[in-house]
Amino acid sequence: MTSTDTTSCPHCGRPDGAGPFRVLSRHLTATGHTEWARCRCGSLQVRVADGRGTRVVSRSRPAAAAGAASA
């Protein structure tokens, strides 16, 4: 996964604060919580929510389509 400082998904352009995205898991931390979520395009995201708000701190490329040929 790569670090990010953008405010939208580089794969589909959807703003990080907009839905739909699916929360896969949520974990409490000393300052808030960390979420693993999947963007509408399939990109896996790590979101941190704390006193500074919610932001995506890491994301992957979307998963390859099922049945797609490997290059």
Rank of each mutant, 00 (worst) to 15 (best):
C41K: 05
A71N: 07
P62W: 04
S58R: 11
V57R: 13
R55E: 06
T6D: 10
H27P: 01
R52I: 09
A71C: 08
V57G: 09
A18V: 02
R47K: 10
S58T: 05
G32N: 00
G67W: 07
S60H: 10
G51E: 13
C39G: 13
H11T: 00
C39Q: 08
A66I: 14
F21T: 01
S3G: 08
W36N: 11
C12N: 08
A49M: 04
G51W: 12
A30E: 14
C9K: 00
S60V: 08
T6I: 12
P20H: 02
T34H: 01
T29N: 05
C9P: 00
T54C: 12
T34V: 15
A68R: 13
S60Q: 12
P10Q: 10
D5M: 03
G67Q: 15
R52M: 09
S8V: 09
F21P: 00
G17S: 15
G32K: 02
A30T: 12
R55Q: 14
R47L: 06
G13E: 03
T7F: 08
A30M: 11
R38I: 10
V46Q: 13
G42Y: 01
V48F: 10
A49Y: 01
T2V: 11
A69R: 15
R59E: 04
T6H: 15
W36K: 03
H27M: 04
T6M: 08
T6K: 15
G42M: 05
S25C: 11
A63Q: 10
R52H: 15
G32H: 04
R22I: 02
S3Q: 09
T6E: 15
